[in-house]
Design a protein around this nucleic acid. Structure first.
Length: 869
DNA sequence: CCATCCCGCCAATTA
DNA sequence: TAATTGGCGGGATGG
């Protein structure tokens, strides 16, 4: 069933059909304009068609809508766009996005859609399938992507750069140059980094030559978006002013102002990006009052805890591992999902290849899936989605309006700084909360909201088994699920691509347990094999060349640790001295890391499901990869690019060795790129889903559904970075009892919608018309998709607390339950990805830590005023 | 006046 | 070569 109609179409439908009268109204209204809210207040509900009736209530004739510029804003457009798709799409379905359709439906020029897509693509929320076609991933990979970006940001030392710039500014202000000398020093330091990392990227952008391969293009929006996000993830108060961001994004600030124009342009672009990110609710506008005056800035409101890619090498993270971005090359690579070969060559996937791949994939799935329970995505779900989308759309809008209405800003989180706080000491503690989930909460990022259905897993490395609790209200009580850690990490999915591979090694904790690693590797191998061999050399020239060449260089690598700390200290010292502001440093996670890691090691390597056999030496693995990388792409894997492989190679050994440097270098090299991670998890789900439904769906759609992520980025995590927590988790294979049921929630949207509508008074209560199964959880949780603060207050309880105490004893692992309220969830029916990670080893304290301590922010010079609006 | 940022020309890249 | 992407900056708009 599901498959039939399904997915594909779902999208378009919304466009114009009249859904319900009311809905239309809403849509219109929303679309109409900001003023709407006013209107709403007045009218509240209104009659149909706003236009028609026109309601002169207001009297004015404003004529329908004044089309003010705001009505056309990119942010609003983005909201509309997002409303069309579920936050956690069911992987089984093919979530294709046709640019033409979207543009038509939303009534905008294509150009605008590109802007949105580029930003979303940079966050892995979508990936380009083909010409006019993108695949929607929603927020499934978001947490991971953010984690990777964070790593990349650290690597690039954006934090330091930011500090430097700030200081510089201060100095300038105060006295122009006096301190130049010092600054220079700093700069130099930084510059190195920069050069190493981003610098290159930058250069390329600036310099044509550097770019050689890189198309200049690569640089832009996508890369910019990633860098911008990195800044937030890295800075302690997660507040970034446009000015600073622009400077960093531009090659550097040293450049000085020369190009005013350039600066101006950069700012323009940042606004574009910021609008999209705001729609995603990852950031919000604020003003910072620094020494100078008030400057426009944005505050991060997204999730703070991200999975750390590094550690886990195992799982997904690794994929993440790389943050990388390589800019141009990356892009290219990435883009090429499938293959990416040489510039032109690409293999473009190939039709024929595709078929092969599919078949292969299918086989794999079967295999893999077997153990796992299939998920179901039934047709209904599909249908439901259909509706859902619409609903979501409306809901989103409504929500938005509501928000506006409710002026209140909620809390300002200024201090959300959780990260900073906790962060340094332990990500771990903090992290827990919700890694993945969406953020929407107002400011709270951490709130763990889980979808009712969803199961969260904690990954703990430590204990072999991880208990997971899932609280569900309605549905059932909470459940505890035990999962083998191993399974988690190494992802069973064969799909994992090489990216994964390297991840594992690297991430695997610094030390990584061999077993785990191997397993993962293995998987990769398999998958990779099948696929196409082509890719290897081909990559884009750029990629290959650069990576190759550069990789060797270790420039950065070396210093990072050594240097960075120094710099930090210096900077901090300076800052303190000057301002008294302090910069928070994060303590290096490493120490923790190690500790944690050990436990992990203990775990049994083998996984039940995991396919991963162990073994394979890295080398082997590598070899294979080289040959094959891409193969997976279809499977949903990402394509690989040769360079990566190399990188991996390098990295692997090093890591194993325990040397950070190796891998790092690579990264460094490419700093600027755009990252594209791969997620296993998703894959997994996907598979599962497919098992059940997949075939059908496929049949319907010839295309590949796969979603592969575009590419994996190449890099791996830095060794340094290894953070203690690793969490990867995300979806687990179907071990858990429940998940199997498909019930999932797919899109929250309906729920939300209801919620919204109810609030509005539009509808009585209860479910939406088309109920979807998930309806059970009526509560509206704000979904990721629509975040609203206002809508629901989810209080972030400390998760730990919420959960049962049991967890405590249970071991190191803490469990977190999530209120079911939150509906959201991924559709996959499965466990979603939320991962919580708790720190594995928790000492008793851990739990505690999580919550409460957030408040203090060390220094902050900046005042942030919420502005909104 | 100035912060935002829409619009769309037109170049780069693809098909 | 045509079409698709998407850099880029003029200049409009709202505050």
């Amino acid at each position: 069933m599901g498959p039939l109609t399904t997915p594909t179409k779902g999208l378009e439908a919304p466009s114009s059909e009249p859904w319900t009268p009311t809905s239309n109204l809403k849509m219109l209204i929303s679309a109409a304009s900001p003023e709407i809210r006013n209107r709403e207040k007045e009218q509240a509900v209104d009659s149909g068609e706003s236009e028609n009736s026109q309601e002169p209530e207001q009297g004015e004739e404003v004529e329908k809508l004044q089309i003010s510029r705001k009505d056309k804003s990119l942010g609003l457009l983005c909201y509309k766009f997002l409303a069309r798709y579920p936050n956690y799409p069911n992987p089984a379905v093919n979530n294709k996005i046709s640019l033409d359709d979207v543009a038509t439906e939303l009534n905008v020029e294509r150009r605008r859609i590109y802007d949105i897509m580029n930003v979303l693509e940079s966050l892995n929320m979508v990936s380009r399938l083909a010409k006019n076609c993108y695949t929607w991933h929603g927020r499934v990979k978001l947490a991971q992507t953010l984690g990777e970006l964070k790593q990349a940001g650290k690597k690039n030392r954006y934090e330091q750069l930011m500090h430097q710039i700030r200081q510089r500014n201060l100095e300038r202000e105060e006295r122009e140059f006096d301190l130049e000398g010092e600054e220079k020093e700093n700069e130099e330091m930084s510059s190195f980094d920069t050069d190493g990392d981003s610098g290159q990227a930058e250069l390329s952008g600036t310099d044509p030559k550097a770019a050689s391969a890189n198309s200049r293009k690569d640089k832009s929006l996508r890369v910019m978006s990633q860098k911008f996000v990195m800044l937030f993830l890295v800075s302690s108060p997660p507040v970034v002013s446009l000015e600073i961001a622009a400077k960093i994004l531009i090659g550097e600030d040293h450049v000085v102002d020369q190009d005013k124009n350039k600066f101006k342009t950069k700012i323009r672009r940042l606004y574009d990006i910021a609008n999209v990110l705001s729609s995603l609710e990852l950031i919000k506008k604020v003003h910072v009052t620094e020494d100078k005056g008030r400057k426009p800035a944005f505050k991060w409101t997204g999730p703070e805890d991200l999975p750390f890619p590094k550690d886990p090498g195992t799982s997904a993270t690794s994929s993440a591992t790389q943050p990388l971005e390589s800019r141009s090359s990356v892009d290219n690579c990435a883009k090429n999902l499938f293959s990416s070969p040489g510039t032109k060559r690409g293999f473009t996937r190939h039709h024929s290849l595709v078929k092969l791949v599919k078949s292969i994939q299918n086989d794999r799935r079967k295999i893999n899936s077997a153990p796992s329970s299939p998920i179901k995505m039934t047709g209904d779900s599909a249908n439901s989605e259909f509706y859902t989308n619409k609903m979501a759309h409306l809901a989103a809008i409504c929500k938005k309006q509501l928000d506006k209405q409710s002026t209140g800003r909620h809390i300002r989180p200024n201090n959300e700084v959780t990260d900073a706080l906790n962060g340094s000491p332990s990500h771990s503690s903090e992290s827990m909360s919700a890694s993945n989930h969406q953020p929407h909460g107002p400011s709270g990022m951490h709130i763990p909201v889980l979808p009712a259905g969803a199961i969260s897993y904690l990954s703990t490395k430590c204990s072999p088994i991880i208990p997971v609790l899932i609280p569900q209200h309605q549905a059932g009580g909470s459940y505890a699920v035990y999962v083998h850690p191993t399974s988690l990490r190494p992802q069973p999915t064969s799909l994992a691509v090489r990216s994964m591979t390297f991840e594992s090694p690297g991430s695997a904790n610094a030390k990584n347990s061999p077993a785990a690693m191997t397993s993962s590797n293995q998987t990769n191998h398999q998958s990779s094999h099948d696929k196409e061999p082509t890719s290897p050399s081909t990559l884009k020239r750029a990629c290959g060349e650069k990576s190759l060449v550069e990789s060797p260089s270790k420039l950065q690598r070396i210093e990072p640790k050594s240097i960075s700390p120094k710099l930090c200290e210096i900077l901090q010292a300076r800052l303190k001295a000057r301002r008294g502001a302090s910069v928070s440093h994060r303590p290096s996670p490493r120490a923790l890391h190690l500790e944690f890691s050990k436990p992990c090691e203990n775990q049994p390597p083998s996984l039940p499901t995991s396919t991963a056999p162990l073994e394979h030496s890295v080398e082997t693995f590598l070899e294979k990869e080289d040959k094959v990388h891409t193969s997976d792409s279809e499977a949903g894997l990402t394509p690989v690019r040769p360079p990566q492989s190399q990188a991996q190679k390098l990295s692997v050994p090093f890591q194993d060795m325990g040397l950070p440097s190796g891998p790092i270098h690579t990264e460094t090299l490419i700093p600027a790129g755009y990252l594209i991670p791969i997620h296993q998890q998703s894959i997994v789900n996907f598979r599962d889903a497919q098992c059940s439904a997949g075939e059908i769906s496929k049949a319907s759609t010839p295309t590949y559904n796969v979603y592969h992520t575009p590419t994996a980025g190449s890099r791996h995590p830095l060794p340094q970075e290894v953070t203690p927590t690793r969490l990867p988790l995300h979806r687990i294979p179907p071990m858990s009892p429940f998940p199997s049921h498909g019930h999932r929630i797919h899109s929250p949207s309906p729920a939300i919608l209801n919620f919204t509508l109810q609030n509005l008074g539009l509808i009585p209560s209860t479910t939406t018309p088309n109920s979807t199964p998930e309806s059970s959880s009526t509560l509206p949780s704000p979904h990721p998709g629509l975040p609203h603060q206002s809508m629901i207050f989810v209080k972030p309880l400390s998760p730990a607390r919420a959960l049962q105490p049991a967890s405590m004893h249970g071991q190191p692992v803490t469990l977190i339950s999530i209120p079911q309220a939150l509906v959201t969830t991924p559709k996959g029916g499965q466990p979603l990805q939320q991962s919580f990670f708790h720190t594995p080893v928790s000492f008793p304290t851990v739990t505690n830590t999580t919550a409460p301590k957030n408040f203090y922010i060390p220094q902050r010079k900046l005042d942030v005023s919420p502005e909104d609006n």
